[in-house]
Simulated assay, not measured.
Amino acid sequence: MASQSDIVTKASEGALEDIQKNSPEDYAKLEASPDLKAKIFQAARATANECVQLTKEFAGQPKDIAERLAKHLSADRIKLIEGGLIIPTFRLNVIKQDDGKHRVDLTRGGKPFSPSKVLESSNDIDWATIMQYASIIVEAVLMVLSAVGISITPSDSVIEGTIRETATIIQSSSRMERAVEAFVSAWDAAGGSAYAKAKALFYLIKDSYSAGILWTIIKSLCSQMKWYDWLETAAKVSAMLIASLLSDGVALIAEIALIVLSAVDFARKIANVIHLADIKKTL
């Protein structure tokens, strides 16, 4: 593992490189605003430094996570992390009808999120599965935002747009489909181990970052922010993820492990994916 100072430097510089790569028009605005660029760089550096300090704290398998986080983070930050996997996109319910066929209902806040669909073909099941994949990844990204101290409340229209865009990307990317499939298998195999489940989710986040889909999701979720606010958000997330990758994910895995076993609605999504695969075998 790289030295602590090297991790902070590489992560903060990498965050600006990510902005330049993924949002060149906004990066040009930063280049024209040196003070703003410096502010965003310092925000990225502070995030990377926090990740390094938490990595030192959680060297080895994490235990007593909340108490140890309290040494470094405020009570409000810890509360934000604790709510990281209960920010809903939509709820998918698989219902067996009287005629023996299965139907999926997608709701958000008790209201229809998408028209119900009877699962009459493999294509129907593939659609439902991809939609569930999209919600898993988007909620994982929302959790990452919470981990770096960012609280956002996207509107229904923003959530819907983000889900649709994410589903389209997954559908056209066998790489991301395999990444979510691997995550579902690892999560299911982890049983009641918070650490193993957290590690599985970390690798999904890592794969999403590597594939570029994470940036797309953040940009969509932050679409109602001013351009410099969303760039600072993206820079913090990039810095944290780069620092995490350079330190074996120790800090982020610990933060996920704090909340993963209480994330009932999130866990239901993984169960849905497995159920849909079982239904598909019967067609």
Rank of each mutant, 00 (worst) to 15 (best):
A2S: 12
A2T: 11
S5C: 11
K10C: 07
A11V: 08
G14D: 04
G14K: 02
L16D: 03
K21A: 10
N22K: 06
P24I: 13
D26M: 14
Y27K: 05
Y27E: 05
A28Q: 14
A28N: 11
K29I: 05
K29Y: 06
E31L: 13
K37S: 04
A46E: 12
A48M: 03
E50S: 08
L54Y: 02
T55G: 10
T55D: 09
K56D: 12
G60V: 12
P62K: 00
A66M: 12
A66P: 08
E67T: 09
K71L: 04
L73I: 06
L73S: 02
L80W: 03
E82P: 06
L85Y: 01
L85T: 02
I86S: 11
P88V: 07
N93F: 14
K96F: 10
Q97L: 12
D98R: 15
H102M: 10
T107G: 04
T107Y: 03
R108V: 08
R108D: 09
R108T: 10
K111A: 13
K111F: 12
P112L: 09
F113T: 01
F113Q: 01
P115H: 02
K117W: 05
V118W: 04
E120W: 12
E120D: 15
S122K: 15
D124S: 06
D124G: 03
A128S: 09
A134E: 01
V138T: 08
V138A: 08
E139T: 15
V141H: 07
M143C: 13
G149M: 02
I150R: 03
P154T: 03
V158I: 05
G161V: 07
T162N: 03
I163P: 01
R164P: 04
E165I: 10
T166H: 04
S173R: 05
S173N: 08
S174H: 13
E177V: 15
E177Y: 15
R178K: 13
V180S: 01
A182Q: 03
G192F: 11
S193Q: 05
Y195M: 06
A198R: 00
K199H: 11
A200S: 11
K206Q: 14
D207L: 05
D207I: 04
S210I: 13
A211C: 14
G212V: 05
G212H: 07
I213T: 03
L214A: 08
T216D: 14
I217L: 05
I218N: 03
I218C: 13
K219R: 15
L221N: 01
C222D: 05
S223R: 08
Q224H: 11
W227F: 14
D229K: 11
E232R: 06
T233L: 04
A239Y: 00
L246S: 04
S247K: 01
G249V: 00
A251K: 00
I256Y: 00
L258R: 02
V260S: 02
L261P: 06
V264E: 12
R268E: 11
I270E: 05
A271K: 11
N272L: 09
N272Y: 05
V273Q: 00
H275L: 15
L276I: 09
A277W: 13
I279E: 02
K280N: 08
K280L: 10
